[in-house]
């Protein structure tokens, strides 16, 4: 389903990341395929433990090679990142790929001034002089919406609010104008009003730099407001992928549909929320074969699932894993035929 597109600069091909637990490797991310283009926000959404953050750190190459086994190919502008050694990877990190983390307090060194923490990334990737770097720090702080950049540059992380710190993290990530920005739950630790501001900043920055953003989040609202394309992950696999409109207006995979129904919304305020049966299996107990979501929809007959679920294009690059979506219905609702349900 890989389409050739000049804008597409990152393609993740069949990537799996396995962690060593008691001497054995278990997949946290299984056979993921994704592409990212310039000027787009790709959201990866899923619940905790679905592998979305592991995928992000895999792209960044932040895993300890002795504890993890990574396979597949991550083609970044013609270079397979997974073949790089540490030195080679460092040329990409910070320069061509910027990363934004969840907890803006712990992600900054408490003993270093903001200025030094932003300059650090330029020291390793540019030939700028100290003076040029300082000018760029001020420019960046302006760009991320900090009112008094000179003052803030001189401060330490603990002197700033959570929203300000997250702006600093963003400034670090975009300092060298990367083509790819990976934002891992960038607003989870923040209040909603600050969240809205930070998402605005991200969007503006993307427009300016023509970057591609991978936005990792568990928050469907954030996804619906910001993403161009969405990949839904469950138990280490992508189960559905498409444009934001496809995912939110015509969700197909049982997991996507269940998730959307379990969210408190305007029209279900007096009803019971939908609860997905069972639990996400732990890494060690992940079924090796068959549909990983099948145990959570036990009323759907086994024959509806594929033995080896693959992604199916149901039109306009809307991809769904397994064939079970065709026969899926909610137990409390009458089956309406081939997977159609008004949401």
């Amino acid at each position: 389903m890989v389409e050739t597109n000049n804008d597409q600069f990152l393609s993740i091909k069949d990537v799996s990341t396995a962690f060593k637990i008691n001497g054995q490797y278990y997949d946290a991310v299984s056979n993921v395929n994704l592409e990212v283009k310039h000027d787009e926000i790709l959201a990866i959404v899923g619940e905790s433990g679905c592998g979305k953050s592991t995928l992000a750190t895999t792209i960044m190459g932040l895993h300890d090679p002795e504890e993890t086994k990574i396979s597949g190919e991550i083609d970044f502008e013609g270079t397979d990142l997974l073949k790089l050694d540490e030195k080679g990877y460092n040329k990409f990190r910070g320069a061509k790929i910027g990363m934004i983390f969840q907890d803006p307090l712990s992600a900054l060194n408490p003993l270093k001034r903001i200025e030094d923490q932003i300059q650090e990334v330029m020291i390793y990737h540019t030939k700028m002089t100290e003076k040029q770097r300082h000018a760029r720090v001020i420019e960046l702080l302006n760009e991320v919406g900090i009112d008094d950049p000179e003052r803030t540059a001189h401060q330490f992380p603990h002197q700033l609010s959570g929203g300000m710190r997250q702006r600093i993290i963003i400034a670090i990530a975009i300092a060298c104008k990367p083509d790819l920005i990976i934002a891992d739950e960038p607003t989870t630790a923040l209040d909603v009003t600050i969240q809205a501001q930070i998402l605005d900043v991200l969007r503006d920055i993307q427009k300016e730099n023509h970057a591609g953003i991978i936005l990792i989040t568990h928050d469907l609202g954030v996804v619906a407001e910001t993403a161009d394309r969405v990949a839904v992950m469950y138990a280490g696999q992508i189960v559905e992928q498409g444009t934001a409109a496809q995912i939110f207006n015509e969700p197909k995979h049982p997991y996507t549909r269940s998730l959307l129904r379990s969210m408190p919304q305007r029209d279900n305020e007096n009803d019971e929320l939908y609860v997905i049966q069972g639990m996400v299996p732990s890494l060690q107990k992940m079924p090796k074969e068959g549909d990983r979501f099948a145990p959570r929809i036990p009323w759907i007959p086994a024959s509806a699932h594929e033995a080896r679920p693959t992604m199916h294009d149901i039109g306009d690059n809307h991809l769904v894993r397994c064939t079970c979506y065709k026969d899926f219905y909610f137990p409390d609702q009458v089956k309406e035929g081939a997977g159609h349900e008004s949401n």
């Binding site: 960044m60 932040l62 540490e86 030195k87 990877y89 460092n90 040329k91 990409f92 990190r93 910070g94 320069a95 790929i97 910027g98 990363m99 983390f101 992600a107 900054l108 060194n109 923490q117 650090e120 990334v121 390793y124 990737h125 993290i169 670090i172």
Partner: peptide
């Protein structure tokens, strides 16, 4: 964070 800046 420092690692993702590309610092050795």
């Amino acid at each position: 964070t420092a690692r993702s800046k590309g610092v050795p």
